[in-house]
Simulated assay, not measured.
Amino acid sequence: MSLLEIRDLHVRFGATAAVRGADIVVERGETHCIVGESGCGKSVTSLAVMGLLAKGAQRRAGRMAFDGIDLQPMSERQLSRLRGDRMAMIFQEPMTSLNPAYTVGSQMAEVRTRHKGGSRRAALERAEELLAKVGITAPGLRLGQFPHQLSGGLRQRVMIAMALMNDPELLIADEPTTALDVTIQAQILRLLAQLQSELGLGLMLITHDLGVVARVATRVSVMYAGQVVESAPTAELFANPQHPYTRGLLDCLPVPGKLPPGSQLGTIPGMVPKLTEDFRGCGFRSRCGFAQPACENEIPLTGDNHLCRCVLAQ
């Protein structure tokens, strides 16, 4: 049984179709990267799983299950018992994800006592242990500090430690290195990979950085215009990209030893289409050099272990 199974997920904000039939499966112990440019539906998909969509959003799916538990009919109270306990999330912006009015220790202890009970002292001991585990020096001192007293890298580590307070089985990390400098990014990625290996977490890592994907992912799903257009094991995807959008993304990467000095990087021409209620077919067709009339129809995600949503792949 898969740890997380999403089938035919749709999310709408009024007349805008933010996610259009996304399919994502995360196995236990797997690092599954969701990659794509800004606005493709990555973060909305993760928020839909956690039940944290903005008020007024419309969500439906053929199946959305965690460890075999159907998430769709759950009430807010039922979902809150899973969220933060067996399912946890590291949010995109560490600067605003922590409450500035409470100390780090108070916020971390609340996560533990809310789901597991026990004393506040035991919760603070657990928090200090995890702060040390994620590489924060003087963890006892940090527990008494407020978020504004910490750097961006430290806040991100606090967010990771907070997500691990209840030993979750699924960890969703939404672009956890976006606001950090390159050196801290590398440290955070190594930390996530180490924790995933040690704890056997199912890790869903959302990013737009293919360099990050190449270093940490077990499997990659590429999203475009609210759909998963390709999904494959990492080595297979980089060696044999089948969707024109995936190929375009890889062509934009600088390759040492292959790209002549001074030459221009590849680009993807055109713009992302406006995803209204009546939009049908491949969202990439207006930017694709291989587009044909059949691309205006709905295209299923086909394949065995290497899945692709393209008429050429079919």
Score class of each variant (00 low, 15 high):
residue 259 L to M: 15
residue 60 R to Y: 07
residue 59 R to L: 14
residue 79 L to D: 06
residue 196 Q to Y: 00
residue 313 A to K: 04
residue 204 M to F: 04
residue 159 M to L: 10
residue 27 E to F: 11
residue 107 Q to S: 10
residue 44 V to H: 04
residue 84 G to H: 01
residue 175 E to M: 13
residue 305 N to Y: 14
residue 96 T to Y: 15
residue 145 Q to H: 11
residue 263 S to G: 04
residue 30 E to A: 03
residue 306 H to P: 07
residue 267 T to H: 14
residue 271 M to T: 15
residue 245 Y to G: 00
residue 141 L to S: 12
residue 134 V to S: 05
residue 258 K to N: 05
residue 171 L to F: 10
residue 150 L to E: 08
residue 236 E to D: 15
residue 15 A to L: 01
residue 197 S to E: 15
residue 208 H to W: 01
residue 114 R to V: 08
residue 146 F to K: 09
residue 67 D to M: 09
residue 159 M to I: 05
residue 155 R to Y: 00
residue 87 M to Q: 10
residue 238 F to E: 05
residue 41 G to N: 11
residue 136 I to G: 01
residue 252 C to Y: 12
residue 82 L to S: 08
residue 187 Q to W: 08
residue 108 M to D: 00
residue 251 D to V: 04
residue 207 T to I: 13
residue 244 P to T: 11
residue 219 R to E: 06
residue 100 P to W: 12
residue 58 Q to A: 13
residue 36 G to L: 01
residue 97 S to K: 12
residue 213 V to Y: 13
residue 280 R to I: 02
residue 104 V to K: 13
residue 20 R to L: 02
residue 281 G to W: 10
residue 250 L to H: 09
residue 180 L to P: 00
residue 151 S to Q: 06
residue 304 D to W: 05
residue 260 P to Q: 11
residue 223 M to F: 06
residue 251 D to S: 12
residue 21 G to T: 01
residue 298 E to Q: 13
residue 284 F to N: 09
residue 258 K to A: 14
residue 148 H to M: 08
residue 94 P to N: 02
residue 84 G to S: 03
residue 20 R to Y: 00
residue 284 F to G: 03
residue 122 A to I: 06
residue 70 D to C: 09
residue 5 E to T: 14
residue 306 H to K: 09
residue 231 S to W: 05
residue 104 V to Q: 10
residue 133 K to M: 08
residue 182 V to N: 07
residue 76 E to H: 11
residue 16 T to L: 14
residue 206 I to G: 06
residue 51 G to N: 06
residue 105 G to Q: 08
residue 235 A to D: 15
residue 85 D to F: 11
residue 33 C to K: 05
residue 67 D to C: 04
residue 205 L to Q: 03
residue 104 V to R: 08
residue 13 F to D: 06
residue 149 Q to W: 09
residue 303 G to V: 03
residue 185 Q to E: 09
residue 242 Q to D: 03
residue 118 G to P: 02
residue 207 T to P: 04
residue 213 V to S: 01
residue 144 G to C: 04
residue 311 V to S: 11
residue 264 Q to I: 01
residue 36 G to C: 08
residue 252 C to N: 14
residue 225 A to H: 02
residue 266 G to E: 09
residue 2 S to K: 14
residue 207 T to K: 08
residue 28 R to H: 07
residue 235 A to Y: 09
residue 313 A to D: 10
residue 56 G to I: 07
residue 171 L to W: 09
residue 54 A to V: 00
residue 119 S to I: 01
residue 215 R to V: 00
residue 58 Q to I: 05
residue 172 I to E: 01
residue 5 E to V: 13
residue 179 A to R: 05
residue 197 S to A: 15
residue 307 L to Q: 13
residue 255 V to C: 05
residue 165 M to Q: 07
residue 80 S to T: 11
residue 294 A to Y: 06
residue 165 M to A: 09
residue 273 P to F: 14
